[in-house]
């Protein structure tokens, strides 16, 4: 049983680390985002191994279902012509790599292995299900919960404002025939012979908007 868990942990760890390395090393950014998803999936598996089921599901729902998809979406919206000569890394990437490796090898590994962790392994941990978490959020962690809510709201509003386009740059919609007719009727006085046209009220569903460019060009013909 122990061996099974160890093997599963090994596989999960390899998946996480391998996928993470691919994220930072592959050239194609879409592939990087896909590897990121694989990495998130591995982390969700790790959470399951650590008996954090709820967190694993939230990881899948939020990270894979929302964040990673958002990343993919943003990449596709900002797609540029892939120039194979253009480097994907900064000039300073060697120093960065050196710092990262040093951080890992010289700081983290010795720290982890020299520190005496006061751990105890509980064969039957308290299940941290949604009910327990809900109680915790509503009692002990109420203030952080509210702050997180405000943060999310701020992020939502901020994201919308940042990404909003200027209205003037929007393309003008092509009109339907009915809209064109309504527009024309409004601009030109209706002939007396057809006086049986009461003006539509403001609640009318007739939508007469801006004429597109081609329309005005074709007017004289």
């Amino acid at each position: 049983m122990d061996l099974v868990v160890q093997i599963m942990f090994g596989v999960t760890g390899l998946l996480i680390l391998g996928a993470a390395l691919m994220v930072v090393s592959v050239r194609n950014i879409i592939h990087a985002a896909l590897w990121l998803i694989a990495c998130f999936f591995g982390i969700a598996m790790l959470y399951l191994l650590l008996h954090a089921e709820f967190l694993a599901i939230v990881q899948v729902l939020l990270y894979i279902g929302a964040v990673a998809v958002l990343v993919l979406f943003a990449v596709m919206l900002t797609r540029q012509i892939d120039d194979p000569d253009e480097p994907v890394l900064f000039q300073r990437w060697r120093s960065t790599l050196l710092i990262a490796v040093l951080l890992f090898a010289a700081v983290l590994v010795p720290t982890i292995y020299t520190h005496d962790w006061q751990t105890f392994t509980d064969p039957q941990p308290t299940f941290a299900g949604p009910r327990e978490l809900g109680f915790a959020f509503m009692n002990a962690y109420l203030l952080p919960f509210q702050i997180a809510a405000v943060l999310l709201l701020a992020a939502l509003v901020g994201a919308i404002i940042i990404a909003m386009e200027d209205q003037e740059q929007r393309r003008v919609r092509v009109l339907t025939l009915a809209e064109e007719v309504a527009l024309r009727r409004e601009r030109e006085p209706s002939p007396p012979a057809r006086s049986a046209h009461p003006q539509p009220t403001s609640s009318s569903t007739t939508p007469p908007p801006v004429p597109p460019a081609h329309e005005q060009a074709g007017e004289g013909a």
Binding site: V181, R194, P200, S204
Partner: peptide
Amino acid sequence: SNDTLTHSLTFTEAPAALTVVVD
């Protein structure tokens, strides 16, 4: 001209759900 574009369409105040074309 206008009369080639539009035709006798009316917006009557009739209680019917659809406006009736008079012609």
